[in-house]
């Protein structure tokens, strides 16, 4: 396995690398149970979070992960930075390069910005979500969470429900699960299911068809209210009725022991009813906890300054 500088997407990772990060996430998760949660491997290293889109959870998760590895963390947020003063991304990168940070964690509304930064910086760049493109640490934490409950991936069935088209979570999570040998299905309003999906991805017309496929996991995507300016479905009520986990569907899910995952934050009454949050096979909180472990594993694994560059 070659040293890797950046984590930009799931596509460019080998199965060996994915399995390495998943295996390493486990001991990092165990640290949480200890009285001293901090370990020293990134002592003296500097992590910068660069978020061009608002996010509290992902940024905090990265920040906690970095701090538990003893790194110093600086948060660079758009509203307080010179981006609002008109600085270009390249100029920002030059500035960051001069600050000699070791890791840059980027979220941006446009696809490809993390790749651009990675090409111009010797720091390790971790993509924390770029446009509709990728959210690789989410993919890794989802795979880690599934591995904990299912053990292996071969032949496991996962249905991703919701706005697959605009979801970088769906893209990264479906890619990683397929690479690991799981079978993936998409279910959602017609216009929100991408046409250019891989041929082995199954699609469904109704929730009953989803149940007939006998999935182990139903992965609910968040309906992004802020991206719903163009109407892809008539109303939230309608969405809930057709694609949400209703009380009636929860009965079937409970009966069959299907796991529920969701990247958070959830819209109660849209993707799922309240009762799902207390359903014993809901993995949503476990995903949050595993997010820290997976991100620690990623930070520990990447090697800043190594020569291998990602060329698109």
């Amino acid at each position: 396995m070659k040293p890797r500088k950046d984590l930009l997407d799931i596509e460019s990772l080998s199965v060996e690398e994915i399995e390495h990060v998943l295996a390493q996430s486990r001991p990092f998760k165990d640290l949480i149970r200890r009285s001293v949660k901090k370990v020293p491997p990134l002592r003296g290293r500097h992590v910068l979070t660069l978020f061009y889109e608002p996010s509290t959870r992902t940024r905090s998760s990265f920040e906690i992960a970095a701090k538990r590895l003893s790194a110093d963390v600086t948060n660079f947020t758009v509203s307080t930075s010179s981006v609002v003063k008109g600085e270009t991304i390249i100029d920002t990168i030059e500035t960051l390069q001069a600050m000699q940070v070791d890791y840059i964690i980027v979220r941006h509304g446009s696809s490809g910005v993390p790749n651009l930064i990675a090409r111009h910086s010797s720091a390790s760049v971790i993509n924390a979500g770029d446009g509709n493109h990728a959210h690789p640490t989410q993919g890794l934490l989802d795979a880690f969470t599934m591995k904990e409950v299912c053990g292996d991936f071969a032949g496991r069935r996962v249905v991703i429900v919701g706005d697959v088209l605009h979801s970088r979570v769906a893209r990264s999570t479906s890619t990683i699960l397929r690479k690991l040998g799981a079978k993936v299905g998409f279910f959602g309003p017609g216009p929100l299911i991408p046409d250019d999906r891989h041929a082995d991805i199954v699609t469904f017309k109704t929730f009953d068809e989803v149940f007939d496929w006998q999935p182990e996991v139903i992965y609910l995507l968040r309906i992004q209210m802020e991206r719903q300016k163009d109407q892809y479905f008539p109303s939230l009520h309608e969405y809930h009725r057709l694609y949400g986990v209703t009380g009636e569907r929860l009965k079937t899910i409970r009966q069959r022991g299907i796991y529920i995952m969701h990247p958070g934050p959830v819209n109660r009454g849209v993707e799922l009813v309240d009762d799902v949050m207390t359903y014993e096979k809901t993995l949503i909180n476990q995903q949050v906890e595993n997010g820290i472990a997976a991100r620690m594993a990623v930070l520990h694994w990447l090697q800043p300054g190594t020569v291998m560059r990602e060329m698109d």
């Binding site: 396995m1 070659k2 890797r4 486990r26 001991p27 020293p40």
Partner: peptide
Amino acid sequence: IDITLYRDDPGNVSAADVMEVA
């Protein structure tokens, strides 16, 4: 215990060094 995270030469830890569960 696994000492990977406590080594004084973290640069020499190869990416393939797998940590064990304490």
